[in-house]
């Protein structure tokens, strides 16, 4: 049986649904010598803000059962350096449309950075992160109410021409309500989930492991939560969803697409196995054969 791995996100066609998630793949530099990045569907690059940022104090990583907490806090070189230095470098070894992950601390920040990134030819989709749990102002606070989420969406849509995907936070009571508000404000799609707010304490030191006290949980631990939320958003909206949260195998990819995702992002798994995206892309057609799936784009929840 011939299998078809192609998927389509708002007119942007991907050879396969596998996309490294923002914050786990930098700008590709650390992976480019490990395998040909052009086998990937796309790349969602490191969350970018208007100004350069160091992020939070260290330690900003903590081990958890089946996952990790991070409180990096959007370390990035700022929108201008990303456009003038990082994307040109990445273009040398990656020739497909990119997903530009943008974060901000005010509506103006989001609009400012998105308007700039919209002009970069290689950018296929703008992924607006309104869900970073590691910054005190902005970040997740925009993603936790339908009104502010819609406001960011509207402001970004007004200054951009490319598809705008809103990256949603799982730290909410009703993710479907937020998705519906964003869709009404013009969102072309959604990415979910960002990390779940968590914390660890070092019982010998009697202090939090993270200098920031709290951080975002990711990894296989959050997969069932992510799957449930993708399903809920799928039922609530009619635009495409990029599903993510603990995906670590081809089986996970198929499961996430059966919950309603049109493509997926691989995050934490890149950190423990830098070859994981390549392995999943190789494993996917075999798994599809096994399950009698001829085309990934046909996978939808019929329940």
């Amino acid at each position: 049986m011939e299998v078809n791995m192609k998927v389509n996100l708002s007119g942007v066609e991907l050879d396969n649904p596998i996309i490294p998630a923002s914050g786990t793949f930098g700008f590709g530099e650390e992976f480019k010598d490990l395998y040909d990045l052009n086998i990937l569907g796309s790349i969602s690059f490191k969350g970018t803000t208007r100004e350069p940022r160091f992020g939070n104090p260290t330690p900003r990583i903590a081990e958890c059962p089946s996952g990790l907490l991070n409180s990096v806090g959007l370390q990035n070189p700022g929108i201008d350096a990303v456009i003038n230095e990082e994307i040109p470098k990445l273009s040398k070894y990656f020739h497909k449309p990119l997903i530009a992950n943008i974060s901000g601390f005010s509506i103006e920040d989001y609009a400012f950075a998105c308007e700039k990134i919209d002009k970069v030819e290689q950018v296929g989709i703008i992924e607006v992160n309104i869900s970073c749990p590691n910054v005190k102002h902005g970040g997740m606070s925009f993603g936790t109410s339908p009104e502010s989420a819609a406001e960011v969406t509207k402001a970004v849509k007004e200054v951009t021409t490319k598809p705008v995907y809103i990256k949603l936070s799982p730290n909410v009571t009703d993710i479907a309500a937020i998705a519906r508000a964003c869709e009404a404000a013009g969102a072309d799609g959604f990415s979910l989930i960002n990390t779940l707010l968590g914390m660890r304490i070092d019982i010998k030191k009697r202090k939090p492991v993270l200098a920031n006290v709290v951080g975002g949980l990711s990894g296989p631990a959050v997969f069932p939560v992510a799957l449930r939320m993708v399903y809920q958003v799928y039922k609530a909206v009619s635009v495409p969803i990029i599903g993510m949260g603990g995906i670590s195998s081809a089986s996970d990819v198929i499961e996430m697409m059966m919950a309603g995702a049109s493509a997926v992002q691989i995050g934490s798994a890149n950190l423990v196995d830098p070859f994981i995206c390549k392995k999943i892309i190789e494993e996917l057609p075999i798994k599809m054969q096994e399950l009698g799936i001829s085309s990934l784009s046909e996978l939808k929840p019929d329940f």
């Binding site: 914050g23 530099e29 160091f54 992020g55 260290t58 990096v72 830098p274």
Partner: peptide, 27 residues
């Protein structure tokens, strides 16, 4: 020494400020 996520420069977990800008302890 710094607490690391990946160990090869991808996650920015172990960054420090230096006289030459932000550096990753692992990479």
């Amino acid at each position: 020494e710094e607490r690391m996520g990946c160990g090869f420069g991808a996650c920015m977990g172990c960054s420090i400020n230096t006289a030459k800008g932000i550096k990753r302890v692992c990479h």
